[in-house]
Structures are given as structure tokens and as C-alpha cells.
């Protein structure tokens, strides 16, 4: 399903990956681990399944993400997109399947170690710290790099101060990168929705993750805001080289922004390929026509 644009070598590698991912026994897990430890695969999911009560939110989903790509995951409401991101970030525990992040294989990703594994994320519904300023919200994104204890902070000892200074500098860079200077010292809760979404992106980017998970970063935005946000997402990849998984309902944005697109429907992956391939895929067209077409402006053509 991988496009010719990736070249024959890439195609071979990709089919090798999916052949390995399709089966799940200990030997193959080890092969999966070896494969995913290759520097060009940041994330590999194999046979992921999760259900809530009777609802199968995901069944047997495979996905592999290469370094530096923008990998879109699309699908109708309730298709399981957020569940997938929640499994990758350790907030949900998959019933079946394995997750390999940057060469380390897990059946359950430890959420508390996520940042140190090089993964950052944003949430579909805003998850900011309302009582902190924009700058402090962003600075929190680097908390995983801190070592100084609370005593060092209270006493203002050198290690605490140098950590603060280093983080302040990184925060300033991200504030400038995302054009947040004019609101940097405001309480985040007082910002309009579109800007809050941007602060959440900033908090994720300041961690300098290898892999960035964006769950509908443009939902509820105006067309201008969306275009702006799309520009930031692309710039984050181009300038900082971060690999991105992007969930988005606006098909126009997705097609313009992503290198490859995976399509989920009722918890199954029904298509995976370049935007052009996915757009032409009959199964995808059926899935989108089957659900009220254009509901979220998600006209596939």
C-alpha cells in the first residue's frame, strides 16, 4: 500500500515490516523490536486491539511511522483515532498488540515515562493548566528534564537556577516560534480557544520530542487559524525534524500536510498510503459516504 514515491527499497522495507507486524509470537516480537530499532522507524504498532465494554474501539491495527514524516490518521467520529493516540501515550492499555517506540517494545506504554521516551502530545479537548501563565504552561513541557529538588528551588541553589534559566531560554524560543509573545504572560485560561490550542502545541514542542502526537489540533478553529496552525505543524517538522502523528477531520488540511495517511473505520484500518492513494481508495470513499458525508466538512474529494 506504500506509494511508489517512496521508492522500491522503501516499498520492500515497508512490506517486510507489515509482514512481521501481522503475526504476533515472541520470536516475531523480537524481530519487531529489531526492526523498530532501525533508526528510520520511530513508532511501530502491531495488532493493537482495545474494547470498552462491548465496543471494539480498535481491532488488529498495525501502523508504522518513519522518522520525519507527518503521518495523518483520519476516520469518521468514533473510529478509534483518539483511542489509538491514548494507547501510544500510555493513557489506555491495549488488550492486544505491542507498541515499539524508538526501538523499545511495550505491551503497555508507561505514561509517566512518556516524555523521557521522546514522545509529546496534545489533547483533543484542551488540557492546559488554567492557573498558570502561557509561559509557565509551556515551561512545564520541559519538566521531565529537571533534576533539582524542591529544597534547591526554595533555597535558589545553582542547579535549580541553571535549570530555570535553560528552560526559560527554550520557552522563549518556542514562544517566538509560535508567535505567542504578546500573550506570554497572560493566564492561559483567559486566552481565546484558538490560541489555547497553540499553547498546547508549544508545551508539546518545547520538550523537543522525537515523536509528536496531535489529536485534532485544528478542531474548532476558523479557516485562517487552521492555515496558521498547519503552517506551524509543518514548520515544526521541517525546522525541528520532529515526527508527527496528526489526527484531523479537515480532509483538505490532511491531504496538504501529510506524507502518508492511515484511515480508520469502526476500529479497523481500512487504508494506508499517500494522500493520493487514500483519496482514490474505494473502501475509504465508501466509509466516508456511509457516514453522513461532509458532516464536519470532511468531504473526501
Amino acid at each position: 500500500m506504500i506509494g511508489a514515491s517512496l521508492g522500491a527499497a522503501a516499498y520492500e522495507r515497508a512490506s517486510e515490516i507489515s509482514a512481521i507486524l501481522a503475526v504476533a509470537n515472541p520470536v516475531d516480537d523480537r524481530r519487531l523490536a529489531r526492526l523498530s530499532s532501525r533508526p528510520d522507524v520511530v513508532l511501530a504498532l502491531s495488532g493493537i486491539g482495545i474494547s470498552f465494554g462491548g465496543v471494539k474501539a480498535l481491532s488488529d491495527v498495525d501502523l508504522e511511522v518513519e522518522v520525519g514524516e507527518i503521518r495523518a490518521v483520519i476516520g469518521p467520529n468514533g473510529a478509534g483515532k483518539s483511542s489509538l493516540i491514548n494507547i501510544i501515550s500510555g493513557l489506555y492499555h491495549a488488550d492486544r498488540g505491542r507498541i515499539a517506540i524508538d526501538g523499545q517494545s511495550f505491551s503497555q506504554v508507561p505514561a509517566s515515562r512518556l516524555a523521557r521516551l521522546g514522545v509529546a502530545r496534545t489533547f483533543q479537548n484542551l488540557a492546559l493548566f488554567g492557573g498558570l501563565s502561557v509561559r509557565n504552561n509551556i515551561a512545564c513541557g520541559r519538566v521531565h528534564t529537571r533534576r533539582a529538588s524542591f529544597v534547591e528551588h526554595i533555597a535558589g541553589l545553582p542547579r535549580a537556577r541553571s535549570e530555570d534559566a535553560g528552560i526559560a531560554e527554550k520557552t522563549d524560543q518556542i514562544v517566538a516560534f509560535l508567535h505567542l509573545e504578546s500573550v506570554a504572560d497572560r493566564l492561559v485560561a483567559t486566552l481565546p480557544y484558538g490560541l489555547q490550542k497553540r499553547v498546547e502545541l508549544a508545551r508539546a514542542l518545547v520538550a523537543e520530542p522525537k515523536l509528536l502526537l496531535l489529536d485534532e489540533p485544528m478542531a474548532g478553529m476558523t479557516a485562517t487559524e487552521k492555515a496558521e496552525m498547519a503552517g506551524f505543524v509543518r514548520a515544526a517538522r521541517d525546522r525541528h525534524g520532529v515526527t508527527i502523528i496528526l489526527i484531523e477531520h479537515d480532509i483538505g488540511v490532511v491531504m496538504g500536510l501529510s506524507d502518508r495517511v492511515a484511515v480508520l473505520d469502526y476500529g479497523r484500518k481500512i487504508a494506508d498510503g499517500t494522500p493520493a492513494e487514500v483519496r482514490a481508495d474505494p473502501a475509504v470513499i465508501r466509509a466516508y459516504i456511509g457516514t453522513a458525508e461532509g458532516e464536519n466538512g470532511e468531504d473526501i474529494r
Partner: peptide, 9 residues
Amino acid sequence: NETAARVIG
């Protein structure tokens, strides 16, 4: 936001 706090470390 306890969940967001945990995820960022």
C-alpha cells in the same frame, strides 16, 4: 490537569 501533568513528566 492531572492527566496532562503525568504525560509531560
